[in-house]
């Protein structure tokens, strides 16, 4: 085998392959990528993921190391079960109470409207969550508690 001839042809072919990869990737990404598509990829819930209507079934187990840039979300159910989660505020797109709860519903995969439909009683830092403060920015290290009904208390504490 004539090695020199082989390498010469091979290098030429490789160079054109590299160039065509460069231009085709550039063109393909310019035509197909957008910030919306990025958020679709990262934020859309899987088709096969189980959707729950029991808001105490799942919790987020992590305690993110973010100083005070977190929010605690606790759901307390009638059957004495609970789901206690801590979310990093840096990972939540909008930091109003309503948007945080929507993001939480997306992560856990339950219908956000269940909170209002089933008349959950929610507090933020022990203040009742109303239509008004749902749209207000929450301060770091806040706690949202949602009870399946108004007469419930935090099971792991003596009383509300």
């Amino acid at each position: 085998m004539n090695r020199k001839k082989f390498i010469l042809i091979y290098l030429l072919v490789s160079f054109f392959a590299g160039l065509s990869l460069f231009f085709s990737l550039k063109k393909y990404s310019q035509h197909n990528f957008s910030t919306e598509k990025f958020f679709t990829l990262t934020d859309t819930v899987a088709r096969v993921k189980d959707k729950t209507d029991n808001l105490c079934k799942y919790q987020i187990l992590s305690e993110p190391k973010v100083g005070d840039q977190y929010i605690k979300i606790n759901f307390w159910c009638q059957n004495q079960s609970k789901a206690r989660s801590t979310l990093s505020l840096a990972a939540v797109p909008h930091t109003t109470a309503g948007e945080i709860l929507k993001e939480y519903a997306r992560i856990i995969n339950f219908d956000f409207n269940l909170i209002t439909q089933n008349k959950w009683y929610c507090l933020i830092n022990d203040q009742e969550l109303t239509e008004t403060n749902l749209k207000q920015e929450v301060r770091p290290a806040s706690t949202i508690d949602c009870f399946e009904n108004k007469n419930l208390y935090r099971h792991d504490q003596k009383e509300l």
Binding site: T42, Y58, I60, S62, K65, S88, A91, E103
Partner: peptide, 23 residues
């Protein structure tokens, strides 16, 4: 971007922080 991507219910089985997603 810091993101919660709950594939395989990752946040329900392990104590995981949000993921640092880059492009």
């Amino acid at each position: 971007f810091s993101k919660y991507i709950n594939v395989d219910r990752l946040y329900q089985t392990l104590s995981s922080d949000p993921l640092s997603i880059n492009y």
